[in-house]
Design a binder for these strands. Structure first.
Lengths: 155, 155
DNA sequence: GTGTCTGCAAACTTTTTGCAGAGCT
DNA sequence: AGCTCTGCAAAAAGTTTGCAGACAC
């Protein structure tokens, strides 16, 4: 597999966790481990509320999840996605070979497909150069109707 | 360029306004005309708060702008964009040749460049087919550092 | 005149923040 | 023990909604 990342992705993110947290004088807490646990069991982006809902109730405050996601994002352990509804969604980095990827979302059932395809790099380069921009990246998500929802008349 | 849009966007939006509103038993009101006026003077996506700020104060309530944007969006007179910060932005359809287009946004100064380039249509087709999806569209925005901001050390 | 719109105020949602006590090392 | 983290509650910020009066046709 073509992956520019140097770390061993087969290692569970939890293994990296200790080291990465230590660097920043951060602690390994029950809440953070539990959050990563939920993310590890779901291969698609989740909202903070969804993560909260998948934790045993009373186990972790919603505010703690918001704070944890900021931290985990800074540590590059999770990636933030935006499906256009103004609600942040997070996915574990390493669940897919490369951190950068996109999604195909069903507008009926909200089902998500993880995509390998990406915006052509050399076209992005051309756009950047043509406009004098540097460090150009992109946000890209696809929306459509999945096979199942095409059949169901209602919904 | 690869643009899947079939409609003719060259007609001025205001000309369409009367007809389109009539169809739905809607009125042409001062507030709506004023909002379109502001949008016509700005070629980049604006937030509702920005639109509100550009209107003579006391002229139009923020709630009215929110309601108007929903209406104008339904009538396809305005297009909604999402720059990833959870704030809706709107741009007049017809300000650019094709309704469907994307932006290149400076992460330092928030400057916006309107782009002609689009995600390759036949690659999108392939993604749709490979996953059994139909009616596939996409949201795509680019982020980088503009020429001016590359020079200014601070900021 | 009739039905749609608007302003105002209140509610709702997502996200952030202050603070005191609990937890990790 | 020392500093970080968490829960709770309150506060931002964007957006939506109910209602009575104003306005378009």
């Amino acid at each position: 597999m073509n992956c520019a990342c140097h770390s061993d992705h087969s290692a569970a993110p939890l293994d990296d966790l200790t080291g990465r947290l230590r660097e920043g004088d951060r602690r390994i807490t029950g809440a953070r481990a539990r959050i990563l646990d939920v993310l590890r069991r779901h291969s698609h982006p989740m909202t903070n509320r969804e993560i909260h809902g998948h934790l045993p109730r009373g186990t972790c405050d919603l505010a703690t999840i918001y704070r944890s996601m900021h931290l985990l994002e800074d540590l590059s352990l999770v990636q933030r996605f935006d499906f256009g509804d103004g609600i942040a969604r997070f996915e574990l980095v390493g669940a897919h070979k490369s951190g950068h990827h996109h999604h195909l979302i069903c507008i009926k059932c909200s089902g998500v497909v993880e995509l390998e395809e990406c915006f052509p790099a050399e076209l992005e380069q051309r756009i950047a150069r043509a406009n004098g921009f540097t460090s150009v990246t992109h946000k890209l998500e696809f929306f459509g109707v999945c096979a199942a929802c095409q059949k169901s008349p209602a919904r």
